Amino acid sequence: MFTKILVALDRSPMGKQVFEQALALAKATGASLMLLHVLSAEEEGSPYAPLLTNFDYYPGVGSQSFEHYQKQWDNFKNEGIQLLQSLSAQANTAGVNAEFTQQLGSPGRLICQLATTWGADLIIMGRRGRSGLKELFLGSVSNYVLHHAPCSVHVISVPSQVTQAEEAPQETASVN
């Protein structure tokens, strides 16, 4: 069965579901977990600044702006590590061997690279349910991993009602 499960996580509510399903499967199969968080501009809440170089070139953008950005980035990284430590401890308490890593880069590529180097039997990850123009411009990490992974991939999807509720503005109707 499975002996090594790579769990790709982010800070969304979907990340919690991904972890819970991975933990349940690891308990059932006796597998070890590798928890991965990728620091990326694609993640909600990321303080990613596209102008990381040449701050002096742009008027009004100086060392204070860079220092502010650096503090935000450090907080973002620390929150990711704290999440991974907490989930790893939760898995270890449940009797599942778990380790973690946080890396900076392209989520799809890093997931596939780590799966290869760590020797994962399975990757468990979430899917945000982007469609249309959002997927065209932002891409799909899960789609990339499905096509490039060196092992089996289990993708957990957001239920369609949740996706529609998040994308569509709330409408209220009144009856006269």
Rank of each mutant, 00 (worst) to 15 (best):
E167S: 12
D74M: 02
T116M: 06
S157M: 03
M1R: 11
I81W: 05
S12F: 10
I123W: 07
S160Q: 15
F66L: 14
L104V: 12
T117H: 07
I81G: 01
Y48E: 01
S160E: 11
P107D: 08
T53Y: 15
T172E: 06
K134A: 14
Q82L: 09
K77C: 12
F55Q: 10
C112S: 11
Y57R: 13
Q113H: 13
V158S: 03
E67V: 09
A149Y: 08
E43W: 04
L133R: 01
N78R: 14
T93G: 00
A168I: 03
E42L: 14
F55A: 12
W118Y: 15
M14N: 08
L136H: 08
I156P: 00
Q21M: 11
E166D: 11
F19H: 00
G15M: 10
E99W: 11
L25S: 03
L33I: 09
T93I: 06
T117V: 10
V141Q: 01
H68F: 13
P159Q: 10
G95H: 02
T172W: 12
I124Q: 02
S160A: 12
F137A: 11
Y69H: 14
A8Q: 04
A91I: 02
A149P: 02
R127T: 11
P13S: 07
V153E: 02
I5A: 05
A31M: 03
Q90P: 00
E171W: 15
T116N: 14
W73F: 10
G139H: 11
I123L: 07
S152R: 10
Y57Q: 14
Q85C: 08
R11D: 08
F55S: 13
Q103C: 01
G139M: 05
Q103R: 13
L122G: 01
S157Y: 04
A168P: 04
E171T: 12
L52S: 13
V18K: 00
Q72P: 02
S86L: 05
S131A: 09
S157C: 04
V7R: 08
V38M: 03
A24E: 14
L104N: 11
P159D: 11
L87I: 01
T172P: 00
L138W: 06
L122I: 09
K16N: 10
T101C: 09
I5M: 05
V158D: 02
L33Q: 00
F66H: 12
E67T: 12
M1S: 14
D56I: 14
V96Y: 03
E42Y: 10
T172R: 13
L110Q: 07
E79A: 14
A165G: 08
P159C: 09
P47A: 07
H147V: 12
M125I: 09
E166N: 13
A31Y: 06
P150H: 10
P169T: 00
N143G: 13
Q90N: 01
G45H: 00
S142E: 02
M1V: 11
R128E: 05
S86R: 04
V96E: 03
A168T: 10
A26R: 04
